[in-house]
Design a protein around this nucleic acid. Structure first.
Lengths: 123, 123
DNA sequence: CATACTTGACAATGGCATTGTCAGGTTTCT
DNA sequence: AGAAACCTGACAATGCCATTGTCAAGTATG
């Protein structure tokens, strides 16, 4: 397996930086919930050599997607899994289309929490 | 969109034929459940001039998809709605890909799909 | 007239999502 | 070293959802 060497770019959205408590506070959920998402295979944060979870910016956005789908659109975790798998298979950003619908339903102005459209971490 | 005049072809899969009790027995659900699906906007059976529901073959398959997604894949109705909307927007048969997952059996070539609609877990 | 359909309501059951905590152990920081 | 935060696994409470089931009052059909 060819592993590309990335020099430590502090702005690399794929770089693992947040421990679970920080990640949880960013997305406003209980750390327990993040572990559940991981057990469900919906997000896979990196680990330090000593097994500590480290969430990247991409992981955070992915979790934000899960929250959007579950809280605003009412989809359960099984549905989220299907949508993620589907997006990966189709190689399309199908979820972006859902964002408009969600914004239409919920007047809660999701842009308040994320100025950039949430985007699941690419494969 | 092509609005064609259909002569009363008894085999037209879009032709409304089953009353709710028959449709319910075909897909093995309570009639109550079919009405719930309709209220949720997941299936829209035709009506007689006197307001009686008539399900077509396409409606039946659609309900079968709902059952497959909910019972086998654990998706809730909100998730089903998203998937249906997505399929309609993309104009793609994205759901067919999900069926493979449910029955990951053989690696046989993508089958020359006999009729345009898939049949989930045919009993 | 009897049977099956319509809508609307109410309820019971079971399952899932989320939060929360506790225990025993490890890592990190001061 | 000691405190704080992490790890896994388990257990529980709350609340919502899906499904089935029934009842009532009204309409349709043979």
């Amino acid at each position: 397996m060819r592993v590309t060497f990335r020099r430590p770019d502090p702005r690399d959205p794929g770089r693992p930086v947040y421990v679970i408590s920080v990640a949880a506070s960013i997305v406003s959920v209980h750390p327990r919930t993040l572990r559940i998402y991981e057990d469900a295979g919906l997000v896979c944060p990196a680990r330090t050599p000593t097994n500590i979870r480290l969430y990247s910016e991409n992981d955070i956005r992915r979790v934000m997607w899960i929250r959007h789908l579950t809280q605003n659109l009412g989809v359960n975790l099984a549905g989220v899994r299907i949508l993620f798998e589907l997006e990966e298979r189709l190689g399309t950003r199908i979820l972006e289309r859902l964002y408009d619908e969600g914004a239409r339903d919920a007047e809660v102005a999701p842009a308040a929490e994320a100025d950039t459209t949430p985007e699941p971490s690419p494969a």
